[in-house]
Write a protein that binds this DNA or RNA. Structure first.
Lengths: 214, 214
DNA sequence: TAGATTGTTAATCGATTAACAATC
DNA sequence: TAGATTGTTAATCGATTAACAATC
């Protein structure tokens, strides 16, 4: 409904709802927030509030019509329009992102990869990998709004500057560099080390008993 | 100081502080929370509160002794003790995680990879990649507390069950499967699609003006 | 003393939960 | 009607910020 700001947590839940709704057999025509909440182990009021932001198809006593709710969720999540992205840096991580299948289904088109050491006519699961020099040319011909940086820290800033010059609006940064960008550019740092450290700390602070390893 | 629960956001800041403090020249002996806050564009009270949870070396008018603060941060972040992890699934993403250098510095030892189609004596940047069958044996000989799942959704649950049987306490799940685990197992789902969708939505909701692409 | 700083207590803000009114 | 459900308003909780006391 209102496209204002949806917090990341809520966004994650909306995607969970969508997946769950799609997983139900076709025979299920209506579904209540309470059932969704139970299935996903969430509070019922929370789900109800989430859904009321997304759809106004809820009917008392019946719940939501499933297919309409799916459509509303997909609309809010922008899954029907498609957004172009390129990956800069085509070693293992870059290749993994190029071949990852999940993006397409969400309307995210990872169009091509770019790498300083790209060989001519290289591809990764059908997607072309060009030398860095071709980036500007490619972006001028294609609609690319997101740049994904997987290059080493040493050249990340330089790659970032070129992406900005190409007119890209948002950057997904897998490098460890702290990027400096103009304020209108949106940067999301994906810090894998942080994720793993957080997991370890949560784990350690939980069972101080069954810790087999010293 | 108190190892209670540190929120993920605070954890991210602590790592930023650590990186910043290490980046300063050796000549800097003391540093104030205010200076750290300015350098990282954070509120000064926030930084002060973070640091006061981590260290009690702060002295009025002087700030914190830099090297002691670094040590305190590393202690809280558990960077000195080492934690063993294995990666299950050794295609592109698994390989990327095996060769990622950043984990070591944080005391995270990614020891080996496992893959259904592993060839004998395979390695990725020096780390062995074994067939799935060897997982139990490896875990019984080595101290492995974290399992990283990068296999396709179809076999993710089965891999997860085996990891649990191996005595692993925490799972970092890159697959799209919703894993079912005993309650004492900690699971963190790394949802790359969600990250990219969130970035796109934030971007779209920001500049509805300069949107070149339709 | 005056200034810079720490660290604490109160205020604000956002997200979640509880209570409840509305209604089909 | 009674029961299931939506959707709203108030309460709670945690994180951040503001105000301020303490002190070197």
């Amino acid at each position: 409904m209102d496209p204002k700001h949806i917090s990341r947590k809520r966004l994650a839940r909306l995607m969970d709802y969508l997946q769950y709704l799609k997983s139900l057999p076709d025979s299920v025509e209506n579904i209540s927030a309470t059932r969704v909440a139970d299935a996903l182990a969430l509070g019922d009021v929370l789900v109800r509030k989430d859904l009321s932001k997304v759809s106004n198809g809820g009917r008392r006593k019946l719940g939501y019509p499933r297919s309409a709710l799916i459509q509303d969720l997909e609309a809010v999540l922008d899954m029907n329009s498609s957004t172009g992205a390129i990956v800069v840096g085509a070693d293992k991580l870059g290749q993994a992102l190029l071949e990852y299948e999940g993006f397409d289904r969400a309307g995210l088109d990872v169009l091509a990869g770019f790498d300083p050491f790209a060989v001519p006519d290289a591809t990764v699961s059908g997607k072309p990998v060009y030398p860095l020099e071709d980036m500007e040319h490619f972006c001028s011909r294609n609609c690319v709004s997101i740049g994904i940086i997987t290059v080493p820290e040493a050249i990340a800033q330089q790659v970032c500057d070129r992406l900005v010059a190409c007119g890209i609006g948002a950057i997904w940064n897998f490098s460890t560099a702290e990027l400096i960008t103009p304020p209108e550019i949106l940067v999301h740092n994906e810090n894998l080390v942080l994720s793993l450290i957080a997991l370890r700390m949560q784990h350690k602070n939980r069972d101080l008993t069954g810790d087999i390893c010293s």
